[in-house]
Amino acid sequence: MADTMHLKKDEIVASSLQQMQSQLAVEKMPLREAVAETCRILFAFGHDSGLSGQITARAEKPGTYWTQRLGLGFDEINADNLLLVNDDLQVLEGTGMPNPANRFHSWLYRARPDVNCIVHSHAPHVSALAMLEVPLIVSHMDACVLYDQCAFLPKWPGIPVGNEEGEIISKAIGDKKAILLSHHGLLVTGSTVEEACVLGVMFERAARLQLLAMAAGEIQPIDPELGREAQRWVSTPKRMEVTFAYYSRRASRGHNLPPL
């Protein structure tokens, strides 16, 4: 005889979350490996755009972070060719130079102590929305990880290599986890590398779903309370870790990437 059929939804949710926490085992990567793997995952999911896009993560020393070397594509990044840079983009460890566009990352790290990783890419479906100057609309369960978490910058400030762009973007995102930058691309933040990676992948999927729906008709909104409920359900640290691990396995299977 089933003994859970009488439980309320919130009781089942709480029990399921507890079960996930105790039974979903995943081995976390060291920080540098996780940053490199994020680059490779984004490549596998179609986020590459030549040398555009940056992934950064706070390092142990305050005011420093790891990022990829300019001149390498997402699929060429490994833990050994990452750069350690400071807020002024001076290289402290590694060979080469960072992307000058990393400057707006420095501004965001200063404004948001809760952010430990930033993913920025010019993924195609996000870029298409950016060209239309249309905000991201979250209206499907899969995309609810971004429900009420995505800001919108309607005016393109130009190439993001100056301090002005850093000020504009860090203010526009506010306390949200993500932002759609008009005529540019996506930016997501995470308290961990795993979270930022997952949000980046899901941002592009949400944009693709939106464009498909817009082509067929008018997008209907979801109930705000249910959207927030879904956002909480899929946003636990354990869920992010397990999803990141799956993305990593999928990337390695699908693209024959070399070892880290």
Rank of each mutant, 00 (worst) to 15 (best):
F152S: 05
P62L: 10
M202Y: 14
L83P: 02
M214T: 11
A57H: 07
C117M: 07
V91D: 05
T236D: 03
V119Q: 02
H105Y: 04
Q18V: 14
A213E: 10
R208D: 02
C150G: 00
G190K: 01
L84V: 01
A128T: 06
R208S: 06
Y147A: 06
K171C: 12
G71S: 05
Q231K: 08
V193L: 04
S49P: 00
R103F: 04
V201P: 00
I55W: 00
Q210L: 11
T236F: 06
F244E: 05
Q23P: 05
S106F: 09
A34W: 09
T56I: 04
R228W: 13
N81C: 01
L212R: 12
L70C: 11
I77V: 11
S16Y: 14
G94T: 01
L187N: 04
P221C: 11
G53Q: 02
K61Y: 12
A178L: 03
A216L: 09
E167M: 04
T236S: 02
G63N: 12
A245C: 02
T4A: 09
K176S: 02
V91A: 07
F244K: 03
H140D: 09
I173W: 02
L211H: 05
E33A: 08
Q68M: 00
F203A: 04
Q23I: 06
Q90I: 01
D142L: 10
R205F: 10
S121L: 04
T189I: 08
N86M: 12
D223A: 11
K176D: 03
R110A: 15
L186S: 11
S170G: 02
E27K: 08
Q19N: 13
L7E: 14
V138E: 09
R250C: 13
E165Q: 07
G227N: 00
S16I: 15
N81V: 01
A128F: 03
K61E: 14
A172C: 14
V35C: 01
V145D: 00
H120M: 00
I179V: 05
Y109S: 03
T95D: 14
L108M: 15
C150A: 10
R249I: 13
T192C: 03
L146D: 01
N78A: 07
M29N: 01
F203P: 00
E195M: 00
Y65F: 12
D88V: 08
L82Y: 05
I173E: 04
C150F: 10
